[in-house]
Design a protein around this nucleic acid. Sequence first.
RNA 1: GGAGAAAUACCCAAGUGGUGAAGGGGCUCCCCUGCUAAGGGAGUAGGGCUGGAAACGGUCGCGAGGGUUCAAAUCCCUCUUUCUCCGCCA
Length: 430
Amino acid sequence: MLDIKRIRENPEEVKAKLKTRNADYDAYVDEIIAIDAERRKISTDVDSLKAQQNKVSKQIPMMKKNGEDTTAVMAEMKELSEKIKADDVKVSELEEKQKMLLLSIPNIPSDTTPVGKDDSENVEIRRWGEPTKFDFEPKAHWDIGKDLDILDPETASKVTGARFHFYKKLGAKLERAIISYFLDTHTENGYTEILPPYMVNRASMTGTGQLPKFEQDAYKLVNAEDNKDTDYFLIPTAEVPVTNYHRDDILSAEQLPIKYCAYSACFRAEAGSAGRDTRGLIRQHQFNKVELVKFTTPESSWDELESLTKDAERVLQGLGLPYRVVALSTGDIGFSSAKTYDIEVWMPSYNRYVEISSCSNFVDYQARRANIKYRPAAGEKPQLVHTLNGSGVAVGRTVAAILENYQQADGSVIIPEALRRFMGVDKIEK
RNA sequence: GGAGAAAUACCCAAGUGGUGAAGGGGCUCCCCUGCUAAGGGAGUAGGGCUGGAAACGGUCGCGAGGGUUCAAAUCCCUCUUUCUCCGCCA
């Protein structure tokens, strides 16, 4: 959520910056400003009526004590009370309307986010490693998975539906090994491990920005018995439960930065991506991910974004997977983000780099939605924290990248050194 | 899922319709004391919205949301959470 004061005081600046997202929010901004002015006017008026009401209410018991007749005063007060009630309704309607509009406006991109209309104008920041070269015809991970009998989408489509997978044998173990390796690396690096619930309520989904605008992308849970909405959603990412862990909290300055890493399954409806990445592990309705989440002071959040991105890169380096880091352009960054770096791993079957992590600074946008504050010093007023998160990293895509980048001419797959202690083998073969 | 009890500040806790939401602990400051302990005094309800250049005001906050009333921590309704017990269950 943007600061209403910023919109009120610099509407043109807000409009111009939002336009860089390749979308037009002018009408929203204008409506918010109009509603805000009306809301404040009625609210101040009704507040002074309440002040009068409170004053007289204190006098009534005194008058009664002195044996005075209060009938006339009470009749007067009844009228006042009715006026207050009616105006209160108006104020809360306007507040509700204003809030819905504010929740529907995305974050303002940071000044360091490259301006561009879409992903074609993203900017490569750095590369690590070289795209893998083969002296044989490399296979795609879905074929490797089938040949080694470790991935089984066909049975998953019988048991569940399209875009689900069974992992088998060393494939299942590889997924588990990667999760352990990621979590161990991040906890050794100062992150606190969290295992969150996979279902969250509406307030949490709103707090991180998935709702109200993107309800069609989420899985909403319905009670089978009466078919009624439970108000629970399957999490699209651990970012939601982990960020909302501190919803409505006032943290102390000494606690910051707070750094969490969390493994979770993630559930995405993938509305609007029919026909894309239909084979393999790249785009699934359910996938595993280790997420990094930080709560920081406003002063440090930009440095923390750089270190967060490097912390995510660390695990790819540990696995020896070639990747590059890309700064997303204003037209490509997510709704709540002020700046995002994507980490893209080399995927031989795509013959290009494919997103495996997305690291963002949300500045105070999520913190304002989720009401997460900190007290800079004892006695000082609480301020909004800055929140950041990044995948550290997507597990299924890591499996795909390992299978493809470590495949051998004989059809086997070498296990990266870092995973061997979790796998117990150094190779997957027929 | 069923029955009962509870939710007030950093903590404990009083408060069954009416003029400032008691009291204690803790914390902060002051006095006393050579220092410490003990003792005495004062302060300590967060946070939002809002008016104002500021000083300083107004308003809403007793788990949440509604309702009754001139007036609600207090009465009524719905919900949430916690505790005790029963049922079911990995």
